[in-house]
Design a protein around this nucleic acid. Structure first.
Lengths: 390, 390
DNA sequence: CTGTTAGCGCATTCAG
DNA sequence: CTGAATGCGCTAACAG
């Protein structure tokens, strides 16, 4: 062929904003290369051995000249599969989610999938809406970090619907693969650590768990561990982070326990804790030398996840000042980046791997695997920091 | 019509995994409702006044019976627009990004757009790849929180390509709308606060800024403010967070300054700071009473963003122990959730609004607005906490 | 090795 | 008010 300029320069269709100059189509390329659409299609799909070198060269040139990019929508429409999967995240604000996401992305990359990330922002309505949307875009599968609730909202998914794998949380009535933390192991690991450190009293703090399977498991495992150990005062405290008033009310009970246990001053700001503006200047609490030298706390708090841990820590700081750690020990499942700074012992979840495995499971499903619902429980890792060391 | 069961129950095509029972198409619905596809299409598009109530009822019934969901891909293909926009995020690990995202989502929801979230994870190659992908999916526009680098990588976008709006960072050679923090104002706000508190020495700490416009602006504004103030020792410290060794080396200079300024002990762990396992038990530094009673730091650190602030704080904690805040004051742009816990003064960005406005700008562009590139600079808010109060 | 033909699921003329 | 026909951009049989 000659070096003629694009025969029919893709013209802007009448109505559309002039800004978008209409992309070249496979037909344009075919014309430009002086051949049929089939050859172009073959070229695009790597059926390359089936093209004469000469033709191939012409095609390459034409593509480059037109800056052609195949339209995935059209491809998907034709083939019936579009390499899209949905990733429904309950709460991106939780570092856990972002970390899982990174595993998901890596796996998708490796498998040639494109994840559509949807953020429910803790709203059931959003979850429903996004699920619907994903269905409508004909994603080949979904990874769901569900809000919990009932199967109802994720009807389009699972058994009859599109392949799905659950992350962290199981959904009642929905049989599907699931990958997440070994909650039993993690809760036990934390409990044992606290026990080993000789705390007299251990409180498990968790968000309302009726709806969320992982929280449920953690609570149960904790309580079991405490029962088995015996001799330690154990309690479970439920914190509904969405309701500030309720939170403060719930924490009041904890405060009393701490005040009773710790032999020293009552701490500053005994106010009911309505606001907690955090402006307590350090050093207004007691006269001990520094650090917790011989001044270890007797009550330990076991937070079921990072958001809870943060909320509790903020409360304690507001109440007891900067040196709140002398009054209560804190251990948390999840290992957010600030844990190191705050010196809080944590149980780190294998988040990246959770995400990665989830995609692998989903991929197998998409490829037609028919095995019954599988589980993949990964172990957490205890990271001991100053907060729980006596 | 009658209550006959779906005339031709959508059968599974030969090759596909049996799991996915083929969704009903508009044709199925038409047949089921005993009418033509056109009427169904009209119904779907809300051209509802144009259908006899009787027909409408039949259509509704058929849709419900078949659990029909229109295929967005096909719609998009036909109409030429698919209501998809891309949201390219440089680093989801940064809480800033997640917050912006929430604004983006809200705006998308309000405008009937569907954001495809792509996470470059700080990798230029990823950024390129996702941009390419978004193009092939024919998104109607993109919101780009670019890695910085050069226009090169985002060729498909901007002027000639699809509409784009930049968030937080400008890209050299690319003219496009941009929305972000008023960096000048923010840096000045922070500088003035520190000045007012009477610090003798102020260090601005920032990641390599040659590539990232927002960092550049912050540095410049800071230095300008310092020059205008006069009489204060000011320095700018560059921290490449990707390189641990370099970070420690850079921070060594800071340590010397702090040691020289603070009249007291040299701090613990004078080791070069290779690891910093954070297990320094509080109280190993000096014998002062508590808090910073009469013991205020003389050098202040101004972190250009939260990741930097965290890194610096971790370093100081590793070096000076839990009471590092007695040695150095810390102020940061960005207001991550742990700032309250750590008691660090911050300048909060109007993240939600940034995201929201970005979508609005993009939407206007998509609808054909032809105005020249616009800027939207939003003001930050100073939140004073204990770290900088003397 | 290469081109022709027929749809994928849907929105739109344009005739009834 | 309704329906039949046309084609979006692309792939997948079929023929050459």
């Amino acid at each position: 062929m000659s070096t003629t300029p694009p025969s029919t320069p893709p013209s802007t269709p009448a109505g559309a904003p002039a800004a978008t100059p209409r992309r070249a189509t496979i037909t344009d390329v075919a014309r430009e290369a002086g051949t049929g659409k089939t050859s172009i299609s073959r070229y695009l799909n790597g059926e390359i051995g089936a093209l004469s070198p000469e033709l191939r060269a012409r095609i390459e040139a034409a593509i480059a000249r037109l800056d052609y990019q195949p339209n995935q929508m059209a491809r998907g429409l034709k083939r019936g599969r579009n390499r899209l999967i949905g990733m429904l995240v309950a709460d991106l604000t939780n570092p856990y989610s972002v970390e899982v996401l990174q595993g998901v992305e890596a796996a998708c990359h490796a498998l040639g999938l494109m994840p559509l990330i949807c953020h429910a922002a803790n709203e059931v309505e959003m979850e429903r809406r996004y699920l619907q949307l994903l269905t409508t875009y004909r994603v080949e599968g979904v990874i769901v970090n569900a809000l919990g609730v009932r199967e109802e909202t994720l009807r389009p998914v699972g058994d009859g619907g599109i392949p799905a794998v659950l992350v962290d949380r199981r959904v009642e009535g929905l049989v599907a693969d699931m990958v997440g933390l070994d909650n039993d192991g993690a809760a036990e690991l934390g409990a044992r650590h606290l026990l080993d450190q000789g705390f007299e009293q251990i409180w498990f703090v968790v968000q309302p768990f009726e709806q969320v399977s992982s929280r449920q498991l953690r609570v149960q495992a904790f309580e079991r561990a405490m029962r088995d150990a015996g001799g330690v005062r154990a309690r479970t405290l439920v914190l509904d982070l969405a309701d500030d008033v309720a939170v403060e009310r719930a924490l009041a009970g904890l405060d009393r326990a701490i005040d009773a246990a710790g032999g020293e001053g009552d701490g500053v700001g005994g106010s009911d804790g309505g606001g907690g503006d955090g402006d307590n200047v350090p050093g207004s609490d007691n006269g001990r030398d520094s650090g917790r030298g011989g001044n270890a706390p007797r009550v330990a708090l076991f937070a079921a996840n990072a958001p809870v841990a943060l909320r509790v820590a903020l409360h304690l700081k507001a109440r007891y000042g900067a040196r709140w750690q002398e009054r209560a020990a804190l251990l948390s499942i999840d290992d957010p980046d600030w844990a190191e700074l705050a010196g809080i012992t944590t149980i780190r979840q294998p988040t990246y791997e959770i995400g990665y495995r989830a995609v692998e499971f989903l991929h197998e499903r998409i490829e037609g695997a028919q095995t019954g619902a599988r589980d993949c429980l990964l172990a957490g890792e205890l990271i001991v920091r100053a907060s729980t060391v006596r």
